[in-house]
Simulated scan of single mutants.
Amino acid sequence: MSNEGIASKPELVLEAGRTERQYWQDLWRYQELLYFLAWRDILVRYKQTAIGIAWALIRPFLTMVVFTVVFGNLAKLPSQGVPYPILVFAAMLPWQFFSTALSECSNSLIGNANLISKVYFPRLIVPISSVIVSFVDFMISGMIMLGLMAWYNFVPDLRILTLPLFIAVAFAASIGVGLWFAALNVEYRDFRYVVPFIVQFGLYISPVGFSSNVVPEQWRLLYSLNPMVGVIDGFRWAIIGGDAKIYWPGFTLSLGLVVLLLISGIWYFRKMERTFADVI
Rank of each mutant, 00 (worst) to 15 (best):
L221I: 13
V258S: 05
V259E: 01
M64P: 03
M272A: 15
G241H: 04
V199G: 00
W24C: 09
L221S: 07
G17I: 09
Y30S: 04
F154Y: 05
S99H: 05
G5N: 12
L260M: 15
D233W: 09
V208A: 13
Y188G: 10
F89I: 11
N153V: 13
P227A: 15
F251I: 10
F181T: 15
K9R: 07
G17W: 09
S129R: 01
F71C: 04
F97A: 11
M272G: 05
L93K: 04
K271H: 06
S134I: 01
I86C: 08
I240V: 08
V131I: 13
K245M: 09
S130A: 15
G52D: 13
V214Q: 10
P164M: 13
L109H: 02
L262C: 01
I53C: 12
Y84H: 11
P94R: 03
G242H: 11
A244N: 00
V195Q: 00
L262Q: 04
G147N: 01
R270K: 11
I175V: 14
V215H: 02
L260H: 08
E104M: 15
F201Q: 00
L225S: 08
S212N: 14
L62M: 14
A91F: 06
Y35S: 13
V194S: 02
G81K: 08
A172I: 09
V194W: 00
K245F: 01
L33A: 07
Y120H: 05
M272T: 10
L14A: 00
L124Q: 08
L225Y: 04
N3P: 02
W55P: 12
A173H: 05
I128V: 11
K9T: 10
L257Y: 02
I42F: 06
I239L: 13
V119H: 10
V82C: 14
R270L: 14
F166P: 02
A168Q: 06
R220I: 14
R236K: 03
I239E: 07
A54Q: 08
A38P: 00
S134L: 02
P227H: 12
D41E: 08
F121V: 11
P122T: 01
I58D: 12
R18H: 14
I42V: 07
M64C: 12
L179W: 02
L12P: 00
E4V: 08
A91I: 10
L14R: 00
I167V: 14
A38Y: 00
G241E: 07
E15S: 12
T49R: 07
I144R: 10
A182V: 05
K9C: 01
Y152T: 04
E187M: 11
A183H: 06
Q80R: 06
I53G: 09
F154W: 02
P94C: 11
Y30K: 04
W248Q: 12
N73C: 07
D26N: 13
I125A: 06
R274C: 05
A101F: 00
W248F: 09
V82H: 12
F269T: 08
M92T: 09
P207H: 10
